[in-house]
Nucleic acid binder design. Sequence first.
DNA 1: CATACTTGTTGACTGACTGCCAATAAGTGG
DNA 2: CCACTTATTGGCAGTCAGTCAACAAGTATG
Lengths: 207, 207
Amino acid sequence: MTAAEPRWRRLEPDARREQILACAVRLFGERPYAAVSTTDIAVEAGVARGLLNHYFGTKRDLYLEVVRRMVLLPDLDEAVASTGPLRARVEASVDWFLDTVSAHGKTFVAVTGAEGVGTDPEIEQILAAADDLAARKVLETVGRPADHDDAGHRAVVRAYGGLVKAAVREWARDETLTRGQVHLLLSQALITIVRDVLPGVAAKGDA
Amino acid sequence: MTAAEPRWRRLEPDARREQILACAVRLFGERPYAAVSTTDIAVEAGVARGLLNHYFGTKRDLYLEVVRRMVLLPDLDEAVASTGPLRARVEASVDWFLDTVSAHGKTFVAVTGAEGVGTDPEIEQILAAADDLAARKVLETVGRPADHDDAGHRAVVRAYGGLVKAAVREWARDETLTRGQVHLLLSQALITIVRDVLPGVAAKGDA
DNA sequence: CATACTTGTTGACTGACTGCCAATAAGTGG
DNA sequence: CCACTTATTGGCAGTCAGTCAACAAGTATG
């Protein structure tokens, strides 16, 4: 008989990297960092443990990649109607967002989950960048065109992002709020922010 | 000459436990979980590493204790005027809260810091309990007395807690917002929630 | 079809870390 | 001064992450 199938298949670096990353995303999404061993990930991917280091460096580096992968909300730059009265724009924006979140299920909830104490600068930076991107997007859609790129405005909307995440958790994970209730909460809050808060948070001095 | 001072001092279990916990709080507040070894904590506390296990069991158990210690906002049950018009009560409440936070500096900011991905049920539960306690407190102060203990209302106010944490981070850590701006944001948002959102989140059916 | 070459992949080695437990000694009462 | 309680130590065993030289899968070459 001829030599049988090889013991392992040789993949393109990109493909192998992607496969490993996918397994890592799943495992890190289920258990906290310390409870996931590189051996677990290697077994899940069906490769030798040393290969993880070859592609990602250290375990922590792999984790950072996972976080980067999970935080970037797909189709974030999808256009949402940015004309019409404020309430209509806000509600359309919130609707689009809730649709996106419900489509990705638990993935979004997992990234927003606070893991307790412990300041990790690099993680913070990744999350901050994602929040800021989302904030710009919101301001672009519902913000007043005049000063939509003001730093103070972005900070307020980033804080609004905290409300959004917490509200989505209540809805998608804990089921303590319905989608309609979350929609109401987020819409009213955003309208209030645009109408009553942003004018008082001007770039130069206060109103 | 008499036998010199002993190589180590014997402490009351409570005292020793407290001392170790204090060191753990400091270290876990500076670095993420995996970057803090039990040896580090033991050295910091000046005790043998095995003593940590004796008092707290596993490293993870010690970490849970640290989180429990940090999340409970001291003097949370301090009375705040719960009479007068809504706006006055809300602003007094927000003021009290910002005072408390600024008094405890970075401690509060550290606990609210999301550490990325990874669902840790026990941590989530601890944080959820703290959030719910805070939510009850807020409802007690500014909520309408009729149905202040409604589950839906608590969920909305817990979500509001997400806004609070994010806003405080912008102010106390990143300094991208002033205290006045945070005060404005949190007050307006809370007023909107009490006025326009909670009535639409009734216990039985919707309005 | 056989051979040399490239490189994706493996497996073992090493240092670090955690949990465990019997021995030790600090403090106290008799 | 001595015996007793127990807080504390120190070392052992198992696990895990990072490194690297050797190996083999796939491809090009004659």
